[in-house]
């Protein structure tokens, strides 16, 4: 039986009917058209589907849309500023070749943003440990780790004021 859910996605409040077995990632991609969040393995391992739910990074392929009722969701589409200026993590990924094919990138970026929330000054080992749930088959991770280190330095140098950005 369909269930009515309400949530905020990238700052916009919405209400929809969903089947209880609809995964959050399917809801985001197919009902809302937010296809930046990818489905990679569909088995909770690769992290291509990582989004933020109430400020925490989660795998949206392993969460039901009904479980997000009342939640605040942030996807990769909501990360850049409204004028298109990339989030510092996105900018650093571009600069340091943190991506090649780009399939893992939305999840990788959302996971990295969450890391820098809990640990603004991670070392390389901490970054690699945190990204254990995000698989990349192109880069060998080197560019990704460099990008996160650089993004962390940039964010520390220019701390954001609350409300300036979604993150």
């Amino acid at each position: 039986m369909p269930v009515t859910v309400s949530m905020r996605v990238n700052g916009t409040a919405l209400t929809r009917e969903v089947e209880p077995h609809t995964l959050l990632v399917r809801f985001l991609r197919e009902s809302l058209g937010l296809t930046g969040t990818h489905v990679g393995c569909d088995t909770s391992q690769c992290g291509a589907c990582v989004v933020h739910v109430d400020g925490l990074s989660v795998k949206s392929c392993t969460m039901l849309a009904v479980q997000a009722d009342g939640a605040e969701i942030l996807t990769i589409e909501g990360l850049a500023a409204t004028d298109g200026t990339l989030h510092p993590v996105q900018a650093a990924f571009r600069e340091h070749h943190g991506l090649q094919c780009g399939y893992c990138t939305p999840g990788m970026v959302m996971s990295a943003v969450d890391l820098l929330r809990v640990n603004p000054d991670p070392d390389e080992a901490e970054i690699r440990h945190w990204l254990e749930g995000n698989l990349c088959r192109c880069t060998g991770y080197h560019g990704i780790v460099t990008a996160v280190l650089d993004a962390a330095a940039r964010l520390r140098a220019t701390p954001r004021t609350p409300g300036e950005s979604a993150v």
């Binding site: 992290g47 925490l56 990074s57 989660v58 795998k59 392993t62 996971s111 995000n134």
Partner: peptide
């Protein structure tokens, strides 16, 4: 346990 995203849920 698992990875950060699994630990969050």
């Amino acid at each position: 346990i698992g990875d950060p995203q699994v630990r969050h849920r």
